[in-house]
């Protein structure tokens, strides 16, 4: 099930990325709608992170191309924010939360430019939005996993972008932090932002996303959640392992019941 749309905010065509002769993503082709919260799901090693990095041009594609807001990524970088997987950096780096968030502002400026009062107030606002203002002066090595994640989100907010690509923002955060982040994402959506979010939990996916991309090296599906969240497609994505199959079965049982709403 691959649903194409007109005037997509992100368009990926024939995208293949190969590391070491083994493809991480293979011939991916999809279009994504503007102003939605879009989930990217698939098992470990299915190429979710690689897809995000290829969209940002952080890894080079072997074939294919990507257009963001109708342009090559180089032309629109300032409008796109990328939040890497939290485990991809060394949190023992000597920096405070403030320093990390400030990187989001420096990113928009040339070499050797200082932060001005506006930048500082954006950083402050970003920290407040993720409830980390009181931690501004704390060293990042002294943060919990959930706080690290929120510091990363604050850095992304400080970029004031229109399109956000987030790699597993819910990994290792507790239920209340997850809820707070979801509220933040919904708020951002209201402001017209597009959010592409890598996610692992099938149970919550139905409540978070309006559009879903299912990935397993190849693209399994891309479309509105209601059409994509379906046994055959999920089985196709997660393969035939016992645990995931049970999971899918459980979910379908749940699907017959009214969805949880808050």
């Amino acid at each position: 099930m691959i649903k194409e749309i007109k005037e997509p905010v992100i368009e990926v065509h024939n995208l293949t990325v190969v590391y070491d002769r083994k493809p991480a993503i293979w011939n991916i082709d999809f279009t994504l709608p503007k102003g939605q919260i879009i989930g990217v799901m698939g098992p470990n090693g299915s190429g979710k992170s690689t897809l995000l990095k290829a969209i940002m041009g952080v890894v080079n594609a072997n074939t294919g191309w990507v257009k963001v807001a109708g342009e090559d990524i180089e032309g629109v970088r300032k409008r796109v924010s990328y939040v890497p997987q939290r485990q991809s950096v060394d949190w023992d780096f000597p920096a405070t939360v403030w320093d990390v968030v400030a990187m989001g502002r420096f990113a928009l400026k040339g070499v050797f430019k200082k932060l001005n009062a506006d930048d500082r107030s954006v950083i402050e606002e970003s920290l407040k939005k993720v409830n980390m203002y009181t931690f501004a002066n704390r060293q990042i090595s002294q943060l919990s996993g959930g706080q690290q994640q929120r510091a990363f989100l604050a850095r992304a907010l400080a970029q004031e972008a229109d399109i956000y690509l987030m790699d597993e923002p819910f990994a290792g955060v507790d239920a209340s932090t997850e809820e707070a982040i979801v509220q933040l994402l919904k708020q951002m959506k209201k402001e017209g932002k597009t959010l592409l979010v890598v996610h692992h939990d099938l149970h919550t996916a139905q409540n978070y996303f309006e559009w879903l991309v299912l990935l397993n090296t190849r693209l399994v599906a891309s479309g509105p959640l209601t059409e994509v969240f379906d046994t055959a497609l999920l089985e196709d994505t997660y393969g035939g392992t016992l645990t995931t199959l049970t999971k899918v079965a459980e979910l379908l049982d749940k699907n017959d019941m009214p969805m949880r709403h808050k």
């Binding site: 041009g57 952080v58 970088r77 990187m103």
Partner: peptide, 10 residues
Amino acid sequence: FDPEFAASVG
């Protein structure tokens, strides 16, 4: 600190 983020902002 974060070369991937750095690359993502160009």
